[in-house]
Amino acid sequence: MSSNSVSGWLGDVAALTRRNILGLRRSPEVVMFSIMQPVLFVLMFNAVYGGAVAIQGGDYTNFLMAGIFAQTMVFSSLISGITMAEDISKGIVDRFRSLPMHPSAILVARSLADLLVGVCSIVGMLITGLIVGWRWNGGLGALLAGIGMLLLFAWALSWLMIALGTFLSGSQATQGAGMLIVMPLSFLSNAFVPIESFRGWLRVFVEWNPVSALVQCVRGLFGNLGTAPVPQVWPLLHPAPATIGYAVIAAALFGAAAQAAFRHRLSR
């Protein structure tokens, strides 16, 4: 790319991101539900498991919050896929594609706009968490680092959903297929219960699940780990590099997949 086309690309990304944000603002239901859902989860899990799950050297509310944060990021990535599929099925992407713009800007703008939804739901959760008694034990820097990790992960996962949405090109199908991915990813992890509660092959899945690394990392940064021994697997022993590694690999892999799907599926 010449410098001229780099600035052209940035201009395209900026114009489309603005368009996507305007769209989210005009359909506030999407954002509202994506904030209400984690709030509900915080209240529900706290009530259901609060008395039942013992956390060594800590309490469940503190343990739970990092898990809910992570789960929310996973679920909100679905929005990227669904809106992408909607734009395709309504012919809007075709309209953009007949313009002299950079097609990759459509995908990048999608992933960026939905980060904003992530930020909104994080704010909603922080407030709810503080109300139900969650406290983070660390500096403001650690808290912000944890939020940064969450957003990085959300951004990376949104590429998977964008690829899926582009490939399926229908919002219903994308929602269905996306659910099949986000449910096991968030529930078969250490988000809601300690990793010791899983046995056998399931335990192996949980240990290597990228969401587990993210939760471990954020829980550590928030100072909510308790005193339980860390499982002896690499991603959980080194959760920060593991999370960044998973995110970079996912963004690269699914970013390329989304581009390929965009090129091949759409010009059939």
Binding site: A15, R19, L22, R26, S27, L99
Partner: peptide
């Protein structure tokens, strides 16, 4: 979700 004006401005921006 956009107004007619916003739609046309967006197209203009994408035409650089």
């Amino acid at each position: 979700d956009l107004t007619g004006r916003e739609n046309l401005e967006l197209v203009g921006r994408l035409y650089q």
